[in-house]
Design a protein around this nucleic acid. Sequence first.
DNA 1: CTGAAAGCGCTTACAG
DNA 2: CTGAAAGCGCTTACAG
Lengths: 347, 347
Amino acid sequence: MKGIHQLAEHLNISIGTVSRALNGKPDVNEETRRRVLAAAEELGYVANQSGRSLRQGETKVIGLMIESSKETVENADNFFLGVTSGLQSVFARHKLDLLMLPCPSDEDPHEYLKRMVARRIVDAMIISDTQRVDRRIDFLSRAKIPFVALGRSLSASNFPWIDLDFEGVADHAVERLISLGHRRIAITAPSSEANLGYLFIDSYRRALERHDIPFDPTLVIRVKSSEQGGYQAAHELLLLEERPTAVILIYELMAIGLYRRLMESSVMPGRDLAVIGFRDAPRARFLQPSLSCFRISLYDLGVALGRMLLATMPAYRDFYPGGERNIIWPLELMPGESDAFDVGAMV
Amino acid sequence: MKGIHQLAEHLNISIGTVSRALNGKPDVNEETRRRVLAAAEELGYVANQSGRSLRQGETKVIGLMIESSKETVENADNFFLGVTSGLQSVFARHKLDLLMLPCPSDEDPHEYLKRMVARRIVDAMIISDTQRVDRRIDFLSRAKIPFVALGRSLSASNFPWIDLDFEGVADHAVERLISLGHRRIAITAPSSEANLGYLFIDSYRRALERHDIPFDPTLVIRVKSSEQGGYQAAHELLLLEERPTAVILIYELMAIGLYRRLMESSVMPGRDLAVIGFRDAPRARFLQPSLSCFRISLYDLGVALGRMLLATMPAYRDFYPGGERNIIWPLELMPGESDAFDVGAMV
DNA sequence: CTGAAAGCGCTTACAG
DNA sequence: CTGAAAGCGCTTACAG
């Protein structure tokens, strides 16, 4: 089966009628529509997207840009695949397809994005890995391409984004540990200049201050956001002259490396050191003793991202009224065994 | 900047000349070409892909289909992102873009593929997760869509594929363990009906037979191909009345769960039990004692997949002459500490 | 070396 | 309710 012409010829009607029947336009005889649908199914006809796109000025494709840097490849915990399902559930209602656009590591992300957008491969974009200053945001805003970002940025004043509640995580974790009697609480932070690191530390500091616990900079352990970083964090922690009784992690995979290093020194999480992890990642779910960490539904996050994006697009706006343009995504603490001990009983 | 008409008008020349200049056609005055290129750059003009695709009958896009099933999301080790770079390095030479097509978990992979292909979103496809019987392969063959598969299949007799050398891994691992004095060697296999499981076990069996070691079915441990499966495998292994002195794993993440379960029973890999892992995954790289496992360059694998695919496409065939249509991808053993002991010294 | 024109496969006002 | 025709943005024979 080639194109709509062949299908129309096969049915002995005009291509216009075929198109209207296929696209569910109202002014088509029901019997005609039935015949068209049946023939299309039988012959496996599906409209060529280039033809449609050219005529309609839209591609019905949403792009999810991902950066396949070495760091991401080695450490990402398929975060994106998790979000994908939620996105697709929203897009499916509008017959929109989600494609992932992997930016080659040797191409500038900004140039890549420009190219994809200019070629009109997609109608809208979801970007992630936002930087404190991110030219992509300015570009998309100015080019009036609908987009939503996973992550805050200092670029542009008003654009749609969803970000994880790093402040809330730090706050909850500190409060919980203090309520369990801890006073000497370490925290990890990314060694990079990522915005979230600042948010995390600030919130930690404020929570301590609420309880009149002085902020001790030696308890802020800067390491890479990776499994290796967790190992390194445990190592540095064990070297501190006055060892903290608890530690809060900022990245999901850190817990795995941290546990390993602690075990090597026979320091047992949940007995000798309280540990609160970050996200409830599949890999971390398997740790023993079980990790106290924060639950997040990647599916729901995907749904929210999808809705927020469509709310910015004229063609779909009406389906998603009154939504927020910015969301701090809450995470829920899941108590495990890794911090389930009374610090008073220690020492 | 809208389209080629605006650009042509801006330059006071015809759209045909603009197109020829932009596309590097020879019969264009160099001064004209220079002016066109400069103006395009300045005004940010990039040809609309729908227009090109419609006219040329090709999209210049290659699709990499991935299945975002729950299993994949929880366990995949970003294998695809690793392959992506290699693919892109090949495609970049021909100005082809790679897009990832995530099949929604509630959609039949076969239907999804048909839809994407019929819509002409892509010129060619890379599929993975091949099943023993895989309708996608028959469909793509019949529809004459260029494709390459990552994984063998019993479907269709002759299609381009690359698969990992599971036989070689089993064979090398057994030979190595026997040379270290082991006689009682366990092996893991997937609990599913995956083809690779059969290949793996067969090769293991043959290697044993070469050394007159009888095949003992209780030493074939069927578990899920996941971290949890590794944990389970260790558990079952420890329950065996006559414990084996070595175990061979079939999936990269198994080692992590296996190590954990062994440690819980104070069984130390490389001292109390020899362990040979599968792929040298980033996460497994961090295990202690270091894991003996097989190295594979995902980048090189991506390059090979890309070349094999282009070799099947008339437009690019000439660039890749004489390539194989099927490759068993070799893996190289990287000795670590997890099997570095003389079994004679044990017991 | 350049321009004018055809046509890729669709959808959609417009007539009837 | 249906058909004929225009036109989306390109590339490419064809004339000149």
